[in-house]
Amino acid sequence: MSVPEMFSYIQGFLSADQEIREDIRKVVQVLEQTAREILTLLQSVHQPSGFKEIPSKCQKARELFCTVRTHLGELKTKFPVDQYYRFHEHWRFVLQRLAFLAAFVVYLESESLVTREEVAQILGIEVVREKGFHLDVEDYLAGVLIMASELSRLAVNSVTAGDYSRPLRISNFINELDSGFRLLNLKNDPLRKRYDGLKYDVKKIEEVVYDLSIRGLSKELEAGGDK
């Protein structure tokens, strides 16, 4: 093969690779738009009147996840199945965002931590790497950490809305979450930085709970629970 032929072959390879990346970007843009719609929908729970609407908002969010599954199904077809991590950077952020949204919905519904398997089921993708397009464990953990920040905000807004028991429950949940992350040996730098942010979320929620205690509201809740 001559030098011109060699570079012509390389150019063909680069062009094909660029086409794949462009196709991926188009689908990811649609996914990002749907993720914004879900987030906008769930943001209403932070409003004083939004707590009563949590069940209906979660139901509508789950309906939008049907659209997410359709787009992720399309994304799977845009690249060779064995080259997930070669193109992973294109959808990493939106997948983490979707994992956060799925985790937030499940928390609002049951006040429990969603499993990686449950998130994958909501998104219509795999957990096992060998099966193709999957939810990487680090993307799942990043989504959970984003949810922790959202819950710290929810704790503050709960007090504003007059819901004094919710911050206490959020505090217990976040502390359990923090204990769980302490068991992990995180070497991924972006994930490690997100985990460092969890410490501030814990502190922020503790301040809310402390304020409730100072005002005597936590004691009123405990007394009401005893009755």
Rank of each mutant, 00 (worst) to 15 (best):
Ser2Gly: 15
Gly12Lys: 01
Ile20Val: 13
Glu22Gly: 03
Asp23Pro: 09
Leu31Glu: 00
Leu42Arg: 02
Gln47Phe: 12
Gly50Glu: 07
Phe51Thr: 12
Ile54His: 05
Arg62Thr: 14
Arg62Asn: 14
Thr70Trp: 04
Glu74Phe: 05
Lys76Asp: 11
Lys78Ile: 09
Phe79Cys: 08
Phe79Glu: 07
Gln83Thr: 11
His88Val: 15
Glu89Leu: 10
Glu89Arg: 07
Arg92Pro: 04
Phe93Leu: 04
Phe93Met: 04
Ala102Phe: 06
Phe104Trp: 13
Val105Pro: 02
Leu108Thr: 09
Glu109Val: 11
Thr115Cys: 03
Glu117Trp: 06
Ala120Val: 11
Glu126Gly: 07
Val127Ser: 06
Val127Arg: 03
Val128Ile: 12
Glu130Met: 13
Val137Glu: 08
Asp139Gly: 05
Leu141Tyr: 06
Leu154Asp: 11
Ala155Ile: 08
Ala155Phe: 06
Val156Glu: 09
Val159Ala: 06
Asp163Cys: 09
Ser165Tyr: 08
Arg169Cys: 06
Arg169Thr: 09
Phe173Ala: 01
Asn175Trp: 02
Glu176Leu: 01
Glu176Phe: 00
Glu176Tyr: 00
Leu177Glu: 01
Asp178Glu: 06
Asp178Gly: 01
Ser179Val: 03
Leu184Val: 08
Asn188Trp: 05
Leu191Gly: 05
Arg192Cys: 10
Lys193Val: 12
Lys193Asn: 10
Arg194Thr: 11
Tyr200Pro: 02
Lys204Phe: 00
Ile205His: 02
Glu207Gln: 10
Ser213Ala: 13
Ile214Met: 14
Ile214His: 13
Gly216Trp: 04
Gly224Glu: 12
Gly224Tyr: 08
Gly224Ile: 11
